[in-house]
Write a protein that binds this DNA or RNA. Structure first.
Lengths: 182, 182
DNA sequence: CATATAGTTCAATTTTTCTTGAACTTTGGC
DNA sequence: GCCAAAGTTCAAGAAAAATTGAACTATATG
C-alpha cells in the first residue's frame, strides 16, 4: 500500500506498471542534461564540487519532489556524493526537504528564489571567510610594531587598506541581496 | 654599471656589499608571511592557485617594484609558477609592470586600488562565465519544444528563471563596482 | 523487539588541478 | 650577428579535492 503511494507520487515509470524489484528510472532528457550542465559550470566557478551542481540542476528541473534514491540513480552518482551534496545544499538552503505522506524517505525540492539561494551561499561560504580575515587582520595589527621603522609606516598603511577592503566586502553582502530583490 | 643601478634599486642586500654571484635575499618577515597567508586564503575562496595569492601578497607588502627573480626566490616557487602567476595577475590587472632605467628585467608592483582589482577579476573571471551561460540558455530555448507537453510549460518557466538570474547577475557587476567606489 | 530500510561517515581510490624544471623563444647589448 | 640573460611553455610529477562504496547508525514498521 505505501509502496503504491510512493510509486504514484515519485515515479513516472509506475505508469509502465513495473512491479517492486529494481525500479527503472527515466534517463536524463536533453533539456535536463543541459540545465544540469549549466549548474555544474556554475558550481565550478563558485568552487563547489560537480556533484553539488548536478544535484541542484536535477532538482531544479523536477516537477515533483525527488527522493534520495532517485537523485542518486538518475545522476549515476554514489550514495556518499549524494548524501554530502544534499547536506551542503540544505546547509545553504538551496534545497529543502518535503514531507510526503506514507513515505518514510526524505524528499527534496530546489529553492527557486535567487534571493534565498544567494543569501545562503553568501552566509555559509563568503561571510565565514571575511570574518576569519577580520580576525587575522586584528592579529596582524599586533605584529606590525616589530617591523623595521622605515617600512613600518607604509606597511601599516597597506594593512590598513586590507582592513578597509574587508569591511567594504562585508558591507557589500547585504547590498547584493537588496539588488537581487529589486 | 647597470648591475650597480639594479642593486641600488632592487636589492636590500646590496647594503651588505655582497658582490655579483648568487645574491642573498631576505627571508619573509612575520608580517609578510601573515599578509601572504591572507591572500592565499582569499585566492582559494576565489578558486585561484595558491601561487597567485602568494605573488600578489608579496607584491602587496613590497616597498619597491620587485623583479621576476626576487619574486621567485623569496617565495621559493618555480620559474613556471612565477611566470604563470604573474601573467594571470597582469591579465586581471592586479599587478602592473614598471620600467626601471638601466635594467632589462621586468619589474612588478601590486595594484592597490580595490576598485581596479575587483573590476579586473569580474571582467576576466565572472563575466565570461555569465556570457557563456547566456549563450547556453539561448540554445536551451531552442531545445525546449521537444519536451513532453505536460512538463513543457513549467520547465519553460523555470528556464525563464535561469535567464532572469543570468541577466540579474550581469546587471549586478557594474553595481558592485559602484559600491566599491563609494 | 527484530528487521529491513534510509541515510551518514570516512578511508581508499580516482580525478582534477597545481607545480616543477628542462627545453625553448625572445630580446637587449656589445 | 652573436651571446647571454629574461621569460615562456608544457610534459611529467606532486598535491589537493572529489568520489566511491563498504561499514555503520538511526528509525519506521510489523
Amino acid at each position: 500500500m505505501s509502496l503504491n503511494i510512493q510509486k504514484e507520487v515519485d515515479s513516472p515509470s509506475s505508469l509502465a506498471g513495473i512491479p517492486s524489484g529494481i525500479e527503472r528510472l527515466p534517463p536524463l532528457t536533453p533539456v535536463e542534461q543541459e540545465v544540469i550542465h549549466i549548474f555544474v559550470q556554475t558550481a565550478q566557478v563558485l568552487g563547489l564540487p560537480k556533484s553539488v551542481g548536478e544535484i541542484y540542476g536535477l532538482l531544479f528541473c523536477a516537477m515533483e519532489p525527488l527522493n534520495f534514491d532517485e537523485i542518486m540513480r538518475r545522476l549515476k552518482i554514489s550514495k556518499g556524493s549524494t548524501s554530502q551534496g544534499l547536506r551542503f545544499l540544505r546547509n545553504i538552503q538551496a534545497v529543502k526537504t518535503i514531507y510526503v505522506a506514507g513515505d518514510r524517505r526524505d524528499h527534496f525540492v530546489a529553492e527557486l528564489q535567487l534571493r534565498n539561494l544567494s543569501a545562503g551561499f553568501l552566509r555559509e561560504r563568503i561571510l565565514p571567510h571575511l570574518e576569519n580575515g577580520q580576525e587575522r587582520l586584528a592579529n596582524l595589527h599586533e605584529l606590525l610594531p616589530q617591523n623595521p621603522s622605515e617600512n613600518c609606516k607604509i606597511l601599516e598603511e597597506r594593512v590598513g587598506y586590507l582592513s578597509t577592503w574587508n569591511k567594504k566586502a562585508r558591507g557589500l553582502l547585504p547590498w547584493v541581496l537588496k539588488f537581487i530583490d529589486s
